[in-house]
C-alpha cells in the first residue's frame, strides 16, 4: 500500500467521524432544550398588580414566574433610613435610589440570594428582612447586611402602568 493510499483512507475515516459527530450533536440538542422553559411558560412573563389598597408600612407579596415578589410601601422614616446608609458599610454596595425608582415603593424579588428561601418581613437586626434558613439580614432597601447571602435581593424589571398598577416583567 502506498503512502498516498493510506492518506486518502485516513481522510475518509476522519471525514466520516466528523460528520457523524455533527449529527450526534444535532440530536442531543433537542433532548437538552426540551427542559428549558416552554413557549407557554415564556408567554406568562409579565403580571400586573393593583397596589391601590396597600397602606404605608405594609408589604404585599405577589407571585411572578412562580416566585414571590415583595411590594412594600415604605414610610417616610424608612426611606430616610434607607438613604442614610453609607456605601462602605455594605457588602454589595447599591444606592437606595437605584433600587427604588419611586422611593415610596420597593419592588423586589422575595428570594434570599443565599440559597433561595423566602425571607421574613420586618425581622432581623436591620429592620428589613430576615432569612430564617441560614440567618441572612437585609435592610429596608433589601440589601444584604449580615449573614451568608452574597448579594442584595434582586430587583425585577417593572414599571408603573398608572398610579395604582405596577406591571412586573
Amino acid at each position: 500500500m502506498t503512502d498516498k493510499k493510506i492518506e486518502r483512507r485516513d481522510f475518509l475515516f476522519t471525514a466520516t467521524y466528523a460528520v457523524g459527530a455533527v449529527g450526534v450533536g444535532a440530536v442531543v440538542w433537542p433532548m437538552i432544550d426540551q427542559m428549558n422553559p416552554d413557549a407557554s411558560v415564556k408567554a406568562l412573563a409579565s403580571t400586573e398588580v393593583d397596589i391601590s389598597t396597600v397602606s404605608p408600612g405594609k408589604t404585599i407579596t405577589v407571585l411572578w414566574r412562580g416566585k414571590p415578589v415583595f411590594i412594600r410601601r415604605r414610610t417616610q422614616d424608612e426611606i430616610v433610613e434607607a438613604k442614610a446608609v453609607k456605601m462602605e458599610e455594605l457588602k454589595h454596595p447599591e444606592k437606595d435610589e437605584d433600587r427604588a425608582k419611586n422611593p415610596e415603593w420597593l419592588v423586589m424579588l422575595g428570594v434570599c440570594t443565599h440559597l433561595g428561601c423566602v425571607p421574613l418581613d420586618q425581622k432581623g437586626e436591620y429592620n428589613g428582612w430576615f432569612c430564617p434558613c441560614h440567618g441572612s439580614h437585609y435592610d429596608i432597601s433589601g440589601r444584604i447586611r449580615k449573614g451568608p447571602a452574597p448579594t442584595n435581593m434582586e430587583i425585577p424589571k417593572y414599571e408603573f402602568v398608572n398610579a395604582n398598577t405596577i406591571k412586573i416583567g
Binding site: L12, F13, A15, V19, G20, V22, G23
Partner: peptide
C-alpha cells in the same frame, strides 16, 4: 440530506 451524506461516507469507509 445529512443522513444521505453520512450514509455515503460510511459506505465507502465500509468498502475500505
Amino acid at each position: 440530506v445529512y443522513l444521505i451524506i453520512l450514509t455515503t461516507l460510511v459506505y465507502f469507509s465500509m468498502k475500505k
